[in-house]
Nucleic acid binder design. Structure first.
Length: 494
RNA sequence: GCCAAGGUGGCAGAGUCCGGCCGAACGCAGCGGCCUGCAGAGCCGCCCAUCGCCGGUUCAAAUCCGGCCCUUGGCUCCA
């Protein structure tokens, strides 16, 4: 049984065959560092993470690249809110993304390239396209000539005759064909370009625009276009042709389409072999999105539900579906996760007790473990059907419960294999944390420590240093080390 | 208008590629029983589905073909 995936490029389910036998080159279109990551972003990250983990499970060596777009007018529009200039705002959100990714228990990518550190590669690629006749300069900007690329539109089936003009009036005037798109944009950022993305507490548009970064190029001072970055960064770190390109389904056109056009015209090689697109999280029958202001930030969701519940929610729909984010669906995910976790814990407790024997075979449980493994693997290989794979795991929980309920003497080898299955499939592949304290418990512990620290701060302010020290010592006895710093107290669990 | 993906029980959501094992999975909610000092957890069972509509192909269709209706995403920054 080999892995099959649905390829947006062909619209069909295909056998997965990497360019190199044992290695998989994976790219995910990352986020623009202009807003906090929300649940929709977290879902795409998590499904990509599960793909990575499944490829690991199958024995592939995965090279995983995921970019941060740190040059964009939306970032400039946040100047004054969380930073003094474009680069500063970008740093702020890049940091917050990294923290969210850690909190979500995502496997680290091999490279997190940023646009600002790949300007040379971007310029080189644009030059190649100009030299080869696929792009032209106009008023210091460079545009991709869609009519020069016979394959244009092959991902999204767009007909360039039907496409509406992109860009503002000035830009349209500079283009030969309305469907042409910018590879390089002359000058900085115009205040009116960031006006619509501005929040009330941001700096005035004029002032913010001043902080936009620009770079020297053969066509004069300017900034990279919207789509060229992903082409430059992916080919730099993965080569001209790589295996899997993941992105949200909202990026199919024009972003991914343009990536293909630029890359294949520049390198003469196939770009990505398999295109996987994740669905859009729905909130009240509408896409969750930063601009619609209907989003729950990844951070808030992790704080409210915990990573395991959130990951269970994500994995309970196939990656390509548009799942409903609501109180009901998250409550259901919570029930599912608890059922799974309880099943795991019962298996561990039964296996680690004196009532577990080597000579008490329970064929029902033994068969259930086998079925779980084969069903899970078949589901994952069938276009990464995490929903079905999860069902297999939940069936295992039922089998464990039935075994422990019905018997006084347990089948140790079978229980051990059940525990292994939970840990390898639910833990390693789905990234769920069996065994350890769950997110909720950790948060309560942290809240309690903060509560004590608040009390201690009150004593200190009142000058009751003896009492304050007693509280610190009491925490220390519990294995919580408190240190005072300029920014207030910090602590860590020993 | 054009492109793409969908429409499956009260909710949510697999199955559709490769028609029959789908008399429709897993789960949530609801109901009954077991267990139980109570509750919870768990176990067993049940309830709720003319699989968007109409027509066609077939011994057989949720699954294939045609038409229509509706939803979501894209065509503008977007996971």
């Amino acid at each position: 049984m080999t892995l099959q995936v649905t390829n947006t490029l062909t619209g069909e389910r295909e056998a997965f065959e990497p360019v190199t036998d044992d290695e998989v080159l994976l790219y995910l279109c990352g986020l623009t560092t202009s807003d906090p990551a929300h649940v929709g972003h977290a879902r795409t990250w998590t499904h990509t993470d599960v793909i990575h983990r499944w490829l690991d499970y199958l024995g592939y060596d995965v090279r995983h690249v995921e970019n941060f777009t740190d040059v964009n007018e939306k970032i400039v529009a946040r100047v004054g809110e969380v930073g003094d200039d474009e680069a500063d705002v970008a740093r702020h959100y890049t940091q917050s993304f990294i923290e969210d990714m850690r909190a979500l228990n995502l496997k680290r990518a091999d490279v997190y390239p940023r646009v600002s550190e790949h300007i040379d590669e971007i310029i080189a690629m644009v030059e190649t396209l100009v030299d080869a006749g696929y792009a032209y300069e106009s008023n210091g900007s460079v545009y991709f000539d869609v009519s020069a690329d016979d394959d244009y539109g092959k991902l999204s089936n767009q007909d360039i005759e039907d496409s509406e003009a992109q860009g503002d009036e000035d830009e349209r005037a500079e283009k030969r064909n309305p469907a042409d798109f910018a590879l390089w944009k002359a000058g900085g950022v115009a205040p009116e370009d960031i006006e619509e993305h501005r929040h009330d507490d941001a700096a005035p548009a004029e002032e913010a625009a001043e902080t936009a970064q620009t770079w020297d190029s053969p066509w004069g001072e300017g900034r990279p276009g919207w789509h060229i970055e992903c082409s430059a960064m992916s080919t730099t770190h993965l080569g001209d042709t790589f295996d899997i390109h993941v992105a949200g389904s909202d990026l199919v056109f024009p972003h991914n389409e343009n990536e293909i056009a630029q890359s294949e015209c520049a390198t003469g090689q196939e770009f990505a072999n398999y295109w996987l697109h994740t669905g859009m999280v729905q909130v009240e029958d509408e896409k969750m999105s930063s601009s619609l202001q209907n989003f729950t930030s990844a951070r808030a969701a992790i704080d409210e539900f915990g990573v395991d519940v959130l990951r269970t929610f994500f994995v309970s729909t196939v990656y390509s579906a548009d799942p409903t984010f609501s109180e009901e669906t998250l409550a259901e995910a919570e029930e599912r996760w608890e059922r799974l976790e309880r099943g795991y814990e019962r298996a561990v407790e039964a296996a680690d007790g004196v009532d577990a024997y080597a000579t008490e075979p329970d064929s029902a449980l033994r068969e259930a473990v086998d079925v779980t493994r084969t069903d899970f693997e078949a589901a994952m290989n069938d276009d990464l059907n995490t929903r079905e794979a999860m069902a297999a795991l939940l069936d295992l929980a039922s089998a464990v419960n039935a075994h422990v309920d019905e018997r006084d003497r347990y089948d140790f080898p079978a229980l051990k294999r059940a525990v292994d299955a939970f840990e390898e499939l639910g833990g390693d592949v789905f990234g769920l944390s069996f065994g350890g304290p769950d997110g909720g418990e950790v948060r309560v512990a942290e809240d309690l420590v903060e509560l004590v620290l608040d009390l201690r701060a009150e004593e200190r302010e009142a000058g009751n240093y003896e009492r304050a020290d007693e509280l610190r010592d009491a925490l220390d006895d519990l294995g919580i080390e408190v240190e005072d710093s300029d920014d207030g107290p910090t602590y860590r669990f020993e």
